[in-house]
Design a protein around this nucleic acid. Structure first.
Lengths: 218, 218
DNA sequence: GTATCCCTTGACCATACGGTCAGGAAAAGA
DNA sequence: TCTTTTCCTGACCGTATGGTCAAGGGATAC
């Protein structure tokens, strides 16, 4: 995509990438700090230190703390949405829902900070991303609800309220990120190993799939 | 216990109750503010305003912001623990686990602020209540895990990992408090009615109980 | 070379925060 | 009534925070 001499002036963005790279570093640091301290507890100085940049430099790329925070939350929201793709590609409910649970568990492991920032934002009344809740999330949810209802109507799974099923999947999978510290403490202070993550995923899948009348075809 | 003329001086605490009452008012306001703004975002002034007291009066009853916060979290923890009583009184797994889910759903409805403060505390690495996690919560969990494992060994329920079952119950029930705003938004911006809370509770119970091999004896 | 543009940053500012304190009000005890 | 204890609170303080700004690099374009 870069080398294609499609445009006469390829314009190699050697120094323009400074912006992209610095924004990436800042966003990564911000995600962690916001997750660990909350919006109110996070300070620009802390984020700057973690990013290895002077505080004034943060304000060069992000005008305000709110702007930076919004970008972090938006990034997370995008990840959530992409995780749902697996839902659509499968026509079989067990495969679709199972894959969705697996994807969400994977995200909980790979993006625990993002999950926490999202949780914090929603818990505080979603002051920043209320529009996402009312727009994208609502329509996405309605689409999924209809898909599940169709499966139910076709007798392919037990008649459960699709919304509460979705909430259960969200709650359970995100719990392993949001309450990771509690789980780690109850795990003897040690973080989950690969094997334990796999076991957790299988446990969640097993209970939920059986709970909606689908055999756990491992 | 008060009227019993056991002690010569019954000492009617007419004005000493000022302390108790004010502490109650402050704690109630603090729970709400900490839940809505997080520890870092909450200010003593905000709590004072919500309690209808001057800020300096708060510091008369609670030396520091941390002290006040700790009391709030401790109160919530106590509520959590009492909710688990239903678990023990029933010998039948379906009844015991069902009653536990019902109790936790009831708490999510009645103490949403407390649930959020707890979630926030754990998400931030439990800086204040780590000792509770390692002490009371861990031993409580181990007791429950053994009880569930016994049921499994006796063939009275499906062989699932008791820990992940507990996590699922915690996650799902608390989700209705912690993510209440998101659920409300997806509910057309209206909070759950009595009927909807009942339906949610039944949905959660149905999926989980069926998921662990227990018929949903409504 | 040199003008231009993007980037960098130390120093600074107004504000708001948690917390203190002294002095007074009000009740309880004698 | 007088004393003591508890409660109340306006005014204040040091600090830390989000944000600003002006002066200065340093690479690129001409």
């Amino acid at each position: 995509m870069d080398d294609a001499a499609e445009i006469p002036r390829p314009r190699p963005p050697r120094r323009t990438d400074i912006r992209r790279e610095n924004e990436r570093v800042i966003l990564e640091a911000a995600e962690k700090v916001f997750a660990e301290a909350g919006f109110g507890g996070a300070t620009m100085q802390l984020i700057a230190d973690m990013a290895g940049l002077p505080k004034a430099n943060l304000h060069y790329y992000f005008a305000t703390k709110e702007d930076l925070y919004r970008r972090v939350v938006e990034n997370i929201f995008t990840i959530w949405l992409h995780a749902a793709d697996s839902f659509d590609t499968a026509a079989d409910p067990a495969t679709g829902i199972g894959a969705y649970i697996e994807a969400k568990m994977r995200i909980s492991r790979q993006h625990p900070f993002g999950s926490k920032v999202w949780a914090s934002e929603v818990m505080h009344g979603a002051p920043v991303i209320q529009d996402y809740l009312e727009g994208t999330l609502r329509s996405w949810t309605e689409g999924r609800v209809k898909a599940i209802q169709r499966w139910i109507d076709e007798g392919r799974m037990a008649p459960v309220d699709p919304r509460h099923l979705l909430y259960m999947i969200w709650a359970t999978t995100q719990h392993y990120a949001d309450f990771g510290h509690q789980i780690e403490t109850l795990n003897g202070g040690r973080p989950f190993t690969d094997r334990q993550w796999k076991a957790a995923t299988e446990s969640v899948k097993a209970i939920i799939l059986r709970g909606i009348g689908l055999s756990t075809a491992d």
